[in-house]
Write a protein that binds this DNA or RNA. Structure first.
Lengths: 253, 253
DNA sequence: ATCATTCAGGCACAAACGTGCAGAGTCAAT
DNA sequence: ATTGACTCTGCACGTTTGTGCCTGAATGAT
């Protein structure tokens, strides 16, 4: 493997995983830790990542608030994203929600995958611009700053014209009684409309969202096909949801 | 084997495998590494690949290509962007094209400006997410990788519903006879539709585009209201355009 | 406070590099 | 056919770069 190729791989891994551990990647790429450390040092000098003891972290880029959320709990979200991406079948039509967890799904779609991806998140769309095999369709509408997705009647109208195989839904609360919830009214409406058009809805929920409830209902919990989470607590929190017929997929960081 | 034939083979291999190792291909093509190195050096000089220690890598397309273009000639484009942004009146409804120059317009919009911005570029939309006073409307459609804008019937349909005050148009050629031109058919159609809906069309053209012509016509030069450029050559290149009734705004870096 | 891990810098070796040069081939003019 | 100019290729040379190992210092966890 070429040195510069290895460096590119490091950057790409960092973006996908949200962190790098020198020892791990040295092992994975079959070179010495010294070499990795040198690479990391040089990449840090170029400002392409931030060096920390034991490995490296991303250099926080542009959109501040959004990125902050991205940094927190990144390892778990990356694992959820990876597990979710593995469920996409070649040739299928999928819908990806906005938000940091859904963005991780986009990041983990295989480079060679051939499929059509619909999203209302410009962030997701741009992330996928590097995937040559994908057709990316962006839903229009009014840009909603907090979560960086488009919204409004235009978005709704476009969603309602679709019929997709798989919808990756991000929510801020998953509760057996309160259902799948989010913090914004309009957001809830759009998400619900998306789920309506999908054969299967895959819910992405990092650990802290399990058992939580936000003000606006997207769907009753039973409407989900699969729940992917990195929750590692007692099983009894998830059992009531499983009892509703939802497949629970637990991932580990 | 002919030298040029060998070079073509190198490029094709690189495309297939994503990387070239000098030693490997020297072996495979039964020539010395010196010869391969020389070939790679020349191909790199032509910009057909990127030379690295040990071999070569592709000049990364898609995102990288876009970023590269962003880097080049940015001083002039920034000045154009600033001058263009100054023309936006508070409370107006404006349309911003995709492309690197148009992105500079977005960058230079005053932070406190209150207005509505419509764009088909997710890049522009994200750039504007920091401007609290703006309502940002993103046009949906199929994402076109080369210029990172949405396209297709959906985009066109949405454009045709609009009536805007100002349209900032980016083109790759400005010529008194050939008109305002761009390198892609669909792109030209969308740009034309946008201009159709705008009371005024402001053309953004960095110096190298003046006097140039690309294959697809967007509009006749006379259809522009204003041309903003950092061209500093003899005035006689711009005079024929001014004679068509187009206001010429020259900026300096 | 102790101990394992991680780090930067130095060293040595191998691989890859650029350059200059010479032989082989091509081409056009004679 | 011969000549001379030119290009392409491989080889030899000394230089640069990348890598792994080592050492002593720094860091973080216990």
């Amino acid at each position: 493997m070429l040195a510069s190729q290895r460096k590119a791989e490091l950057v790409s891994r960092l973006q996908r995983e949200g962190r790098l551990i020198a020892k791990e990647v040295a092992d994975a790429l079959a070179v010495s830790e010294d070499t990795i450390r040198r690479d990391l040092r040089e990449l840090a000098a170029e400002g392409r990542l931030q060096r920390v003891h034991g490995g490296a972290l991303p250099t926080s880029p542009a959109v501040a608030g959004f990125v902050d959320r991205q940094a927190m709990g990144h390892a778990g979200k990356a694992a959820i994203g990876r597990a979710a991406a593995a469920r996409v079948r070649p040739g299928s039509l999928i819908l990806i929600d906005g938000g940091t967890t859904a963005l991780q799904v986009a990041r983990h779609l295989p480079r060679e995958l051939t499929a059509t991806v619909v999203t209302h998140s410009p962030h997701v769309a741009m992330e996928l611009s590097g995937h040559g095999g994908l057709e990316v369709i962006l839903l229009g509408g009014v840009l909603f700053r907090h979560s960086m997705v488009t919204m409004g009647v235009q978005t709704l109208e476009e969603v309602r014209r679709l019929k997709v195989d798989l919808f990756f839904l991000g929510v801020t609360g998953v509760h057996p009684a309160a259902g799948l919830t989010t913090g914004h009214h309009q957001d809830a409406v759009v998400k619900a409309a998306m789920a309506e058009q999908a054969a299967e809805t895959v819910v992405l929920a990092s650990a802290e969202k399990i058992g939580a409830a936000s003000p606006y209902l997207v769907l009753p919990a039973a409407a989900a096909s699969v729940l992917i989470t990195d929750h590692r607590g007692a099983a009894d929190v998830l059992d009531p949801i499983a009892d509703l017929g939802v497949e629970i997929a637990r991932v580990t960081v």
